Computed example of a mutant assay.
Amino acid sequence: MFRSVLRPVALAAALMAALAGCGSSSHTNTARVNAAGSVDLSGITLTLGDQAHGLETLLDAAGALKGVPYKVTWAEFQGAAPLFQAMQSGKVDTGTAADLPTLQAISGGLKIKVVAAATANGSGTAILTQPGSPVKTVADLKGRTVVVSSAKGSIAEYLLAKALADAGLSYSDVHVEYLLPTAAQAAFNAKQIQIWATFGVYQDIAVEKGAQLLVDGRAGRTSGVGFISAAQSSIADPARKAAIADFLRRLAQAYAWTTTHAAQYAQVFVQKNGVSPSVARTVVSQGARALQPVTPQVVTEVQAVSDLMNHIGSLPSDVRVAGTVDTSLFPHALSQ
């Protein structure tokens, strides 16, 4: 399962394998909506896009999908770029990604809406160097090559851009290359990559093996916002929309469960993903603790991300974040 992230996998192969696992388009399923507006979801199959089994592990650990009135299949990806390609194909109903990859997809014409948000402290995105590297500060990056996972417009690229700006450098002061996380992980382990901007479990495994943490996304260097998005075609189907709304409610319950079951969550993470207990504990500690509606404050924070990345040319258009949001599926926090 998760052990595959430790091996290089080409983007095309990963995408095709994931799409094959999705089967035929989920939009061919049917569900009945009666005159009173109640929905029979038994004919719906939701295909949920995931990265590195993150949501799947969380929901399984919390038992949040027990008794769902619809069917669920998972589409697994290494990063946001192939996930959104699958959503473009109509094979996937929902996706999970950081703010910038979501904006990148929307900027490229993907017809999705942002339906919920989860905010972490930013520590799960970092720029790493090899043990003993002469690069000790962000200023030392000038003139060097930085490999960014997973593609142009990733959250790791935003961290690099923001850190450079904060250090008084321009984005053109470094040479940027892009590589999917598993391929970058293998190259970094072989010392073929000296400086790597990455995220999540890929980052945590590298640090456990001795990588130096140059800087992470805390202290405002990233927004820490992750988005759940849904295909507009899925939202347009009343029954499918109802199923997605139910999924979001269950996801909110799973996030709430982690606040009092962190140790149990970490144990499940080890079992399902084949990582060490210390890496699992780190991943859990870096994660969000609540699913929330996409509030005006979230919109403002993410708009700043859009503006900066458009300024350096990594976002084709300066996305107006407020216009990408649909709050009807998850209008209230779990406690409300």
Rank of each mutant, 00 (worst) to 15 (best):
A290E: 15
A288P: 00
S328E: 07
P331R: 10
V325Y: 04
E301W: 09
L291G: 04
R289S: 05
L315T: 03
F330M: 00
Q303Y: 06
E301T: 11
V298W: 01
V299G: 00
P293K: 04
L329S: 02
E301M: 14
Q292K: 02
D318R: 13
D326C: 05
E301F: 13
S306P: 01
R289Q: 10
R289I: 03
I312A: 08
G313K: 10
L315A: 05
L308S: 02
P296T: 02
V302Q: 01
A288W: 02
V321N: 08
S328R: 03
A290S: 15
H311S: 15
S306F: 00
P316I: 04
T324G: 02
S328P: 00
V305E: 01
D307Y: 12
E301I: 03
A290K: 15
I312G: 05
S317K: 12
D307A: 14
V298P: 00
V321Q: 10
T300P: 02
N310K: 05
T327Q: 12
L315D: 05
P296Y: 09
T327I: 14
L329V: 09
P293E: 14
A304G: 14
S317A: 05
E301G: 07
L291K: 03
V325M: 02
T327C: 08
Q303L: 02
Q292G: 10
V319H: 04
D326N: 14
T327Y: 11
P293D: 13
S306E: 00
Q292N: 10
L315C: 07
A290Y: 12
L315G: 01
R289W: 11
P296C: 07
P293C: 08
E301R: 11
Q303F: 03
D326M: 10
A288K: 01
E301A: 15
D307E: 15
T295R: 07
V299S: 03
Q292W: 13
T327K: 13
D326S: 08
P293R: 11
S314D: 15
P316Y: 08
S306W: 01
R289A: 06
P316R: 04
V305C: 02
A322D: 07
G313L: 11
V319N: 08
R320S: 12
T327F: 09
S314A: 15
E301P: 01
S317I: 09
L315P: 00
V299Y: 01
S328L: 12
P331Q: 08
Q292S: 14
D307C: 12
D318Y: 06
P316T: 01
S314H: 14
N310R: 12
T300V: 09
V321L: 11
M309P: 09
L329C: 07
T295F: 14
D307S: 15
S317Y: 02
T295H: 13
R289F: 06
E301D: 13
A290W: 03
P316K: 08
N310S: 09
S328G: 05
T300A: 15
I312L: 10
L308D: 07
T295I: 12
L291T: 04
V321C: 10
Q292I: 10
P316Q: 02
L329E: 04
S328A: 10
S306I: 01
V325F: 05
S306Y: 03
Q297W: 03
V321S: 06
P293Y: 09
P296H: 08
T300M: 11
M309R: 01
A304K: 13
L291Q: 03
D318L: 04
T295P: 14
T324S: 08
D318G: 13
R320F: 10
H311F: 14
P316W: 07
V305F: 00
R289H: 09
